[in-house]
Design a binder for these strands. Structure first.
Length: 286
DNA sequence: CCTAGAACCTGCGAGC
DNA sequence: TGCTCGCAGGTTCTAG
């Protein structure tokens, strides 16, 4: 479940179902799922044992579970297809189950990391003084973070020699935005994905940020976006925002503003969806 | 330093 | 039916 709203839905589920429980033991079924944990799978499993999980946090698409009475956290990234599920102990093993965490209580559920494509994973890291896993210190605050600096973001856009969608997907400038919400925010802002950022005026940058926040909050309110069973909350349930999408996945369908057929362009090994009339291409498109 | 593009994986649906 | 191709909510490494 990749972008910010989907990850936040998962974080809330973990807060409700996993926080304050003590790990009995962990089992790593695929080494790629812990590749960020340099000391390896056995070390990862061993270090979780006996520790109580604190309240889960999130920045952008990363979330982490602090281990109480330590200065470390379990960092999680869902990649393209990762799921964190709270399942009954007796539930059948998922085909792509990669990590299982059992708890030392009688609630009867366990935490499972399931990931078809293995781009995601879990790992254990020291926290920085502000409680963030050290390996994600370079990730920017996300737009729903009260301490996100709008002015600094605008200045960063001015400084870069890049285009706006690339900038939105650059997790060191603004985190949590992925392919869906980038296209949605750009459609709302009537901006073409290939517009150079260096010419952005402050009002334009701030308006775009407003649209990013609006679309993410709207998605969050209905449990995020899912087109299939790959993107679910910790209880395996899908969100409903797919039916509210204005741009993503709408190739050939009429623009909801002006009726012009929407287009899809191959872009950076993926796709960009846009309205050719509302979102005009820049004159000089490199 | 910076930016663009490919690589990393598995599975699914479309088209032949 | 079975094959190949293109495509998928991300990040990270490499080449230029």
């Amino acid at each position: 479940m990749p972008e910010l709203p989907e990850v936040e839905v998962v974080r809330r589920g973990l807060e409700r179902w996993v926080a304050h429980r003590t790990v009995a033991d962990a089992e790593v079924l695929h080494p790629r799922a812990v590749r960020r944990h340099i000391a390896g799978a056995d070390d990862f499993a061993h270090r979780l044992k006996g520790h109580r999980i604190g309240v889960p946090s999130r920045r952008g698409k990363y979330l982490w579970l602090p281990l109480e009475d330590t200065t470390q956290s379990i960092l999680a990234h869902l990649g393209m297809s990762g799921q964190l599920l709270v399942q009954p102990r007796e539930a059948p093993t998922e085909k792509h189950l990669r990590i299982r965490v059992r708890f030392a209580d009688e609630l009867g559920t366990e935490l499972r990391f399931v990931d078809q494509r293995t781009f995601g994973g879990l790992s254990l890291h020291d926290n920085t003084p502000d409680g963030l896993p050290d390996v994600i210190a370079h990730i920017a605050r996300d737009p729903l973070d009260p301490l996100f600096d709008d002015e600094a973001f605008h200045q960063a856009l001015r400084r870069k020699r890049t285009t706006i969608k690339r900038a939105l997907l650059d997790q060191s400038l603004i985190s949590g935005v992925g392919n869906i919400y980038a296209d949605e925010a750009l459609w709302r802002a009537r901006l073409h994905y290939d517009r150079p950022t260096a010419t952005f005026t402050r009002p334009r940058s701030l308006e775009l940020l407003g649209h990013v926040r609006d679309v993410m909050n709207a998605a969050l309110a209905v449990g995020g976006t899912s087109f299939d069973s790959l993107y679910v909350n910790v209880n395996g349930e899908s969100g409903y925002f797919d039916r509210s999408l204005d741009a993503y996945g709408r190739e050939g369908l009429p623009c909801k503003r002006c009726g012009t057929p929407m287009r899809r362009r191959a872009w950076m090994n993926r796709s960009s969806y846009f309205c050719p009339k509302c979102q005009r291409a820049p004159r000089v498109s490199s």
